[in-house]
């Protein structure tokens, strides 16, 4: 036989190993330090340039399946056809899904923050970005509100640079 039984979990000491994998897990130290040049490609370049120059969210329409992909893509991921028909989509939409970030990460804003997938009006796919203006003093309360899949709107920053951080979402009802 190519394999031989060893003691089951919870009895690891019996095979000579005195280390309980639950009480003393193996920890791996990691360090990433590298630079690179990111080229957005033809469709994403135009998508980001539209944010910077025109403060509008653009998608591409697939003639085969009639979906509007946002952010704009050069190929339809369902039909595998090249698409180049550009459409502006709405600046309001529905928060489909979200997460509340509670751990800091280099380069990201200080937690807690919210990121969410929003399907903008006129779009067939959801767009991921920060959701601003949510009261995060009570995570359960914030989560309950966001789970209702509220309407949100796009708010552009004062200085657009052609990055996803040029805009964020905020609740439509906040000032209703």
């Amino acid at each position: 036989m190519s394999s031989t039984p060893v003691p089951p979990d919870g009895d690891a000491a019996a095979d000579g190993s005195t280390t309980d994998p639950v009480a003393e897990p193996v920890t791996i130290q990691g360090h990433w330090d590298f630079g690179y040049t990111y080229f957005a490609g033809a469709s994403a370049s135009r998508f980001f340039n539209e944010l910077r120059l025109n403060q509008r969210i653009m998608g591409t329409h697939c003639p085969t399946c009639d979906r509007v992909l946002v952010p704009a893509r050069g190929f339809c991921d369902a039909c595998y056809v090249e698409i180049d028909e550009w459409r502006e989509v709405g600046t309001e939409g529905t928060l489909d899904s979200f997460t509340i970030l509670t751990t800091s990460f280099p380069g990201l804003p200080e937690p807690p923050t919210v990121v969410g997938y929003v399907t903008l009006d006129g779009a067939s796919t959801a767009l991921l970005n920060a959701v601003h203006g949510i009261d995060l003093h009570d995570f359960d309360e914030a989560g309950a509100l966001l789970l209702t899949q509220p309407r949100v709107r796009v708010v552009f920053s004062d200085k657009c640079e052609g990055r996803i951080t040029d805009f964020a979402f905020e609740l439509v009802a906040a000032d209703a």
């Binding site: 630079g35 690179y36 040049t37 990111y38 957005a40 340039n49 280099p106």
Partner: peptide, 9 residues
């Protein structure tokens, strides 16, 4: 659109 990116984590 081209961005220079650096990760240090």
């Amino acid at each position: 659109l081209i961005h220079d990116v650096r990760w240090e984590i």
